[in-house]
Design a protein around this nucleic acid. Sequence first.
DNA 1: TGCGCAGATTTGTACGGCCAAATGCGCGAG
DNA 2: CTCGCGCATTTGGCCGTACAAATCTGCGCA
Lengths: 248, 248
Amino acid sequence: MAERPQRESTYLRLARELRTAILRHDFPDGVRLPTEAELAERYEVSRQTVRRAFQDLVAEGLVHRVPGRGTFAMPREEQYLRQFGSVDDLMGLSIDTRMDVVAPLHARVDVDAAGRLGLNTDRVHKLSFLRLHDDVAFCHTSVWLPPAVGRLLDSVPELTSPGSPNAFTVIGLLDQRLPEPIAEAEQSITVAGATPEVAGHLGCEPGRPLLRIDRVYQSAAGQAVELAISHFLPEHYSYRVRLRRNGA
Amino acid sequence: MAERPQRESTYLRLARELRTAILRHDFPDGVRLPTEAELAERYEVSRQTVRRAFQDLVAEGLVHRVPGRGTFAMPREEQYLRQFGSVDDLMGLSIDTRMDVVAPLHARVDVDAAGRLGLNTDRVHKLSFLRLHDDVAFCHTSVWLPPAVGRLLDSVPELTSPGSPNAFTVIGLLDQRLPEPIAEAEQSITVAGATPEVAGHLGCEPGRPLLRIDRVYQSAAGQAVELAISHFLPEHYSYRVRLRRNGA
DNA sequence: TGCGCAGATTTGTACGGCCAAATGCGCGAG
DNA sequence: CTCGCGCATTTGGCCGTACAAATCTGCGCA
């Protein structure tokens, strides 16, 4: 039933290795990355394969290429773009935040969340946590999972009891444990008043307007695997993205 | 001084023609686009060139490819993604909106706007308009331009007097008239209270929380050419994006 | 010294070919 | 009639080559 991931193609592997090197900050500002020819020889692949990998990294906004000069990592502060999981992942990477579980993983009945996940039951698993920066809470997130997905996280002690470190994200854990990788997310951004629960955790009055980001993550098969609703204090966070021109 | 665009590469031309055909809705839901082989023969190019064009369209979220089956246009409601100018352009395409100029193009002194445009003067050109759906205003937008850019729009009667049709967008006009095309935009989304001016146009109380989207458009040379600040009534609009997975 | 041109380096575009993987269809066996 | 195998179609991946365009370096000449 659960298909293992078949062999990763060469250019995806190359892109992955370069990506981690860049995120590890192996190539500081003015430093040129290895040239296409160098990488082709080192990895024993054709130059076209190297180019294909770089195409992805350019599309992700991680590198910047100049004809005649070379390839350069984008400066740290310009990397917040087009990345999958920008709210969850990039914030953890670029800003010093902590994540505290305030409502551990538990089963419950929630017709609305179940509907948005496309389930035919009304039972879901739920989990809430806070993000803090300098010990100030600025984001409250609740996550709903289909029961089958929630059970994959039962064995993670940090999610089933309050107070956890920041070493991982829910979506990162799911990506490892699901039979299929997570392929897409649909996101909507709007304004919403703080519910009493959220207000209590963020330390603001109920009804206080917050930036609300909803996300539904989907597997490659189109199955919804996670619904996440985050509320941000707008003084402490704004959603930023860089858009690039495609064609004419 | 003003360089004309040199020859457009083959794959960009192919991508552009396919893009307009898709946006013209030439390929309804289940209809397959021409295959790589067909396009290669029809345009007398190699199959790799066709593939390169499709890569861009996939990255833009306009098409969807399935091994063994073919290439299909994304359904209309899924096309709101990754597109440059999603706020301005896509809204006009997908929803039936009207645009009314409420403050025609005029010169003024604005240190803050000039600073965000990276100018060394404090003089800018400004313009404001409303977006309406079923005669209900739901978005107020103010646009600031460097003086040299603003002068390019002096000759557009619809922008220099109140009450205009919806046939174009500011960014579309600039793209035609600037010596260089617009290459990038940086966008930030947050929550802001309605100023008295905005509240008056949107018919709400001042201080009412709104969804605020700021955009700075930049030319290929890195010059900022437009600053746009939009305020939306959150009941009538939410910002939606679809994020796709790049690599692992 | 200072200027400019020739060549080397590096990325961009385009071609051709080859095989793999996924899908859909039809035909034949049972 | 139904199931399943095999073939045709279509996209995915990879290679090798060739030339163009942009940038940088260094040499030679005035």
